[in-house]
């Protein structure tokens, strides 16, 4: 069932046996966070990470296939790009709801929507990255007797890596943000504690969950940036030069 707000439900948190901080709904109650980390926040955080990792991983595979196809057959690039942009423009909450009659109130609904939002960013960056290999470098590779697939694996893909990783970072961070909307469809991810807290305007939960969502995005961005630097040592030499 969607539309949590406005429906009556169990009173969360239970004000009866709570500390004075919680009862008065003060700005931030550390004791609530301590007591609810294991039962509420940590599971939501882990579900959120899982939703995002699955979406980005599948999105990455689809986008890579599409990008390689568009790179080999240039006339396919525009139609694929238009399709990806079309999916990207549909508002997330609407797409979730439109998928519900097809896939139900399930994780599949959420994943299909999240995957479709990663495609545009990943696809565009992959194609731009593949195109970034200079002609004389490709000539040299050909001159060395490399086959097409060797050139792809050993020249074009490595040169595209910075662009691909930049796309992966944007896609991951925006999927982390979008995955909070999943709570409209399934009781999972960091959006769900926000929904629960909205029933009572419970401040601590609203703040902590929001901070977790933004923090997760920034941490993921940092990790991917570190991975990008580790994977492209040659770019570092250029950066410092």
């Amino acid at each position: 069932m969607t539309g949590f707000v406005g429906q009556s439900g169990p009173v969360i948190p239970n004000f009866g046996e709570a500390s004075s901080c919680i009862q008065e709904n003060r700005l931030f109650c550390p004791d609530w966070v301590r007591d609810n980390w294991a039962p509420v926040l940590q599971p939501a955080l882990l579900q959120h990470v899982k939703l995002v990792v699955i979406a980005v991983a599948i999105g990455f595979v689809i986008a890579l296939g599409a990008a390689l196809l568009a790179y080999r057959h240039r006339r396919l690039e525009a139609p694929i790009g238009v399709l990806a942009a079309f999916l990207y423009t549909i508002p997330s909450l609407a797409l979730f709801q439109l998928l519900v009659p097809v896939t139900g109130l399930t994780v599949s609904t959420v994943e299909v929507a999240l995957i479709s939002y990663t495609l545009l960013i990943l696809f565009r960056n992959m194609v731009a990255g593949l195109r970034s290999a200079p002609q004389d470098v490709l000539e040299a590779a050909r001159g060395m007797g490399m086959s097409r697939s060797q050139i792809l694996r050993r020249v074009e893909l490595p040169l595209a890596l910075p662009s691909i990783m930049a796309g992966l970072r944007i896609a991951t961070v925006s999927t982390i943000a979008l995955a909070t909307v999943a709570a409209f469809v399934i009781p999972q991810g960091l959006g769900y504690p926000i929904f629960l807290a909205l029933r009572e305007f419970f401040k601590t939960e609203l703040i902590v969950t929001a901070v977790l969502a933004v923090g997760l995005a920034l941490v993921a961005d940092g990790l991917l940036l570190a991975a990008e630097r580790a994977l492209t040592p040659w770019a570092r030499a250029r950066r410092t030069a």
């Binding site: 982390i176 943000a177 979008l178 909070t180 909307v181 709570a183 926000i194 807290a197 609203l206 933004v214």
Partner: peptide, 11 residues
């Protein structure tokens, strides 16, 4: 980019 709409509204 990292700001979820829902989190902004929550805060």
């Amino acid at each position: 980019r990292a700001l979820p709409t829902l989190a902004v509204i929550a805060v």
